[in-house]
Design a protein around this nucleic acid. Structure first.
Lengths: 214, 214
DNA sequence: AAAAAAAACAGGAAAAACCCTGTATAAATT
DNA sequence: AATTTATACAGGGTTTTTCCTGTTTTTTTT
């Protein structure tokens, strides 16, 4: 196996250089460069630097942070594998890095062995996912209706669901076997309750509160 | 550690009983019952049977399938840990089982050792997630605009995004600095293109095709 | 420069959505 | 039994949306 070129991007110089030593001690890996923020990386890559196999990327950095860097990489170097090395395990951060193509997400307090394993796995299988990622993904999946401050009657909920389909109120009235005037009453009541101005507003509210299934 | 009570639910009798032997051979686990579909399980649990620690659940079953069973369990026995054992790895199925609280999802062709490990991990950590789950979760996350058969101009896309907000066309016209009549032209053109009948239909289309960010 | 295509805009009208106020009836409270 | 509350419904008006058929202006193509 050829030596894998690794780039480290981290503004914490001490950490970055210790990491460099560690990675250089692994067989098959060599750190070819370290940068202290995303902008430096982007600049070098843009000006013809050879692409690395793997980038070890921090999240919190000055000038151009990990998320912005990840977005750039996704767009211009999608084939370069990125492992995020971060102090923070906030789920929104994890999700946003994974969404933008990170192949792994590790906390900085892991054992060196795990980093080695992550590198190997990412190179061979394309990704390395730890519990931290899986849990974030799971919570992201949550689609329980958020507990609303109002409790909606069955008919109201049914109206909302139908109002979020490509139907006229007349059609909704037929389907619910009620007068169009009654339907108009539901509409008006819910507009006031949700503080929306039109049917689009109602639909936005319904989506944000998981009242409907698209 | 006390012996963990396990229930197997699988209509494939031969498989179910082989599995029973296998699990009984594991230390710390004992199969207390096997059922050939979800309905049998639900009936027994409802009529006072002691709850198991773990349920090994198949997906494809007659009468009451794995998904329906999982939904029932999520509602009435949320604390019972379920590991899905399935032949199929269709991502929608995986997602739906995980959404409904399955703690693990394994294919039936795995090694016995892995099942043992899954049982131990589920009992101790609460879940056991294999690549099959992580991959399904990842793809679920996809929010790239799907490649449309039409290519939309910038103005059209902007109109769509504004039309999916709580605005009148007059307001949209102001914001885009165009005449309301021009906006109406965009509307009509896109209605025909997407084959929708009203603004709600347009919004549904935009959401399904990831044209907008809510 | 002429022709073709695309983008911006209009008139006019019907349909649907929106809004306000008010009534009859059934259901729940007291 | 009397009162309140909730539900279904109406009249009638304003605004917005939707639809159809054009014209003018700008941009692109030839």
């Amino acid at each position: 196996m050829p030596i894998r070129r690794v780039i480290i991007v981290d503004d914490h110089k001490l950490f970055a250089h210790s990491l460099e030593h560690l990675v250089n001690d692994f067989n098959d890996y060599a750190v070819v460069d370290t940068f202290s923020n995303g902008a430096e990386l982007v600049e070098k890559l843009s000006s013809g630097m050879e692409n690395p196999h793997v980038i070890l990327l921090d999240v919190k950095m000055p000038i151009m942070d990990g998320i912005a860097t990840m977005k750039w990489l996704k767009k211009y170097r999608p084939f370069v594998k990125v492992i995020v090395l971060s102090m923070e395990d906030e789920e929104t951060t994890v999700l946003s890095m994974i969404k933008n193509g990170a192949k792994g997400y590790l906390l900085k307090d892991i054992e060196p062995d795990l980093l080695k394993k992550a590198l190997d796995t990412v190179v061979n299988d394309g990704y390395f996912h730890t519990d931290i990622v899986t849990l974030a993904l799971m919570h992201n999946l949550d689609d329980e209706p958020k507990k609303l401050k109002f409790d909606l009657k069955d008919k109201e909920l049914q109206f909302i669901q139908l109002a979020c389909e490509e139907k006229t109120y007349k059609e909704i009235a037929d389907e619910m076997m009620l007068s169009p005037k009654t339907i108009d009453g539901y509409r008006q009541h819910l507009f006031e309750l949700f503080k929306v101005k039109n049917r689009i507003g109602l639909m936005i509210f319904a989506i944000k509160n998981n009242l409907i299934e698209l």
